[in-house]
């Protein structure tokens, strides 16, 4: 199955785990995620000056909620969405596997995974052991 968004993620080569793609500004180390052809969102340097890097896919859950209504196209409720801090620093929103919100308190270790969705492989986050 093809990746739904190969600009953002790639297989980690271990089970169904995923790596995330980002850009790094060499001088400051500032990361831009999602990777952007328009430049570094911290320093403003053009994309040509940035280097492509992969992020581990490891993250810490900051907050998780359930979406109860069909408020966005293509998002079928109920579904869990979380704010997560990636191990390398950026804070992102991601969809979370499962529906057990109570099992996902702040601080829960998470990892990006690739799951079948919409005819391809999409990125979700899964609770993992610390």
């Amino acid at each position: 199955m093809d990746l739904l968004e190969p600009r953002l993620y790639a297989p980690a080569g271990e089970a169904d785990f995923a790596l995330l793609r980002a850009l790094r500004e060499p001088g400051s180390g500032a990361l831009t995620f999602p990777p952007s052809p328009y430049g570094c969102t911290t320093t403003g340097r053009p994309a040509e000056a940035l280097e492509e890097v992969t992020l581990s896919g490891h993250a810490t859950l900051l907050t998780c909620i359930a979406i109860h209504q069909p408020v966005l196209p293509g998002l079928v409720p109920p579904v869990l969405v979380a704010r997560l801090r990636l191990a390398e620093g950026p804070v992102v929103q991601g969809l979370v596997e499962g529906l057990d919100e109570a099992a996902l308190p702040p601080g829960t270790p998470m990892r990006a995974v690739l799951v079948p969705a919409e005819g391809g492989l999409a990125c979700r986050f899964r609770k993992v052991a610390a």
């Binding site: 968004e5 600009r7 953002l8 993620y9 995330l20 999602p34 952007s36 052809p37 900051l62 907050t63 998780c64 909620i65 979406i67 408020v71 966005l72 196209p73 293509g74 998002l75 969405v81 979380a82 704010r83 992102v92 929103q93 991601g94 969809l95 308190p105 702040p106 990125c123």
Partner: peptide, 27 residues
Amino acid sequence: DGLPRLSPTADSPLVEFALLARHWRDA
């Protein structure tokens, strides 16, 4: 803007503020 998003909720004010509400409860 031509950029991909990791989550379809990334630009939704509703989701953003619902997450903020839960964060305020937790923190």
